[in-house]
């Protein structure tokens, strides 16, 4: 509550200065409803970065809401933002399909909607102005390349068996990353078999349990692809506890824990994706839309490959 209070004070003071200054354009009121802040560091860091970016811009006021992972609450928040007549709404969907009617409602009220981080399903594309976030299909195929290259180095690309721990079912990011990975892998490494995929729900504990089950079921696992590093580290912990060495772990959204495990050589590769870039891109997209600028419908920011070999080029993630 205090942070909000400070934010209001700060923007208040800032806008007062501007007003006294001279030409004072109308401030843009931008509302955001986030998926589930506090469930992991990525979302928390995203929220902070978003607020910081909004504070730094005197033309912007923000209403920051969190759906707590509950679709019903997110729909209610969309209605609240429409009722408060904000100028634009940024939504981080809890479920890519369930929020479409709520997004249409905003569209019908002439409020532009920007989807951030994880896209909504295609049926809803008519009602949004832009999607700002990572290109998750590319992320998945890059992860497949990282894994395949490593297997080729090790000379086991003819017989390796891997398992996949995907993100939360129904969540577009999870679907796209899995699709990108599963499509690309047979192109680069046709003889590597993906024996099983199970969801880890973006949760480290859940992922650890899933991996424990995999280890019970399969005597030979050469690689694990997980939908993000948080889950990847959970899987790594399970493998370490069971004393199974030599498994190649590849993830996405490089978390600090993943980066550290990579330093120790336990974790092989990931995709570098910053929540700060993500948040700033979303806010900028909303501002551009409100300013009437041309914004690409799919507004991706770049997310490069990171592995044990090239990690020195990247600073350690803050989350």
């Amino acid at each position: 509550m205090t942070s909000k209070f400070r934010r209001v004070l700060a923007t208040g003071v800032a806008s007062a200065c501007l007003f006294a200054g001279a030409a004072y354009a109308d401030t843009m009121k931008i509302g955001i409803t986030q998926n589930n802040v506090g469930v992991d560091s990525y979302q928390t860091t995203y929220e902070r970065a978003f607020i910081a970016a909004a504070e730094a811009n005197p033309d912007v006021e923000t209403v920051v809401l969190d759906a707590g992972g509950d679709v019903a609450r997110q729909i209610a928040q969309m209605e609240d933002l429409i009722q408060q007549e904000v100028d634009a709404i940024i939504i981080w969907p809890t479920n890519g399909e369930a929020v479409i009617p709520a997004v249409r409602k905003a569209h019908n009220a002439d409020i532009p909607v920007i989807v951030t981080n994880s896209n909504i399903a295609e049926q809803g594309f008519d009602f949004i102005k832009s999607f700002s976030g990572p290109d998750n299909i590319t992320q998945g195929s890059r992860a497949a390349e990282i894994m395949c290259d490593k297997f080729k180095d090790m000379g086991i690309d003819g017989e390796a068996q891997i398992v996949q721990i995907s993100g939360q079912p129904g969540y577009t990011t999870a679907i796209e990353r899995a699709k990108g990975f599963e499509d690309r892998l047979p192109e680069v490494c046709p003889d590597v078999t993906l024996v099983e995929t199970q969801p880890g729900d973006w949760n480290r504990e859940k992922s650890q349990r899933v991996m424990e089950a995999f280890l019970v079921k399969y005597d030979d696992i050469d690689g694990v692809y997980s939908g993000d590093d948080n889950m990847g580290v959970g899987a790594l912990n399970a493998a370490k506890a069971a004393g199974r060495d030599g498994i190649i772990f590849v993830g996405a959204t490089n978390f600090a824990v993943g980066y550290e495990a990579m330093e120790r050589g336990e974790y092989w590769g990931s995709i570098y994706q910053s929540p700060v870039d993500d948040a700033e891109a979303a806010l900028q997209t909303a501002i551009d839309v409100l300013n009437g600028e041309d914004v690409p419908f799919l507004n991706y920011f770049d997310t490069p490959k990171i592995t044990h070999d090239n990690m020195a080029e990247f600073s350690k993630p803050v989350f």
Partner: peptide, 15 residues
């Protein structure tokens, strides 16, 4: 309570 706390900008932990 939920609506009001959102209205005045309380964050998740406060709610």
């Amino acid at each position: 309570l939920r609506k009001g706390l959102g209205h005045i900008g309380a964050d998740t932990e406060t709610v």
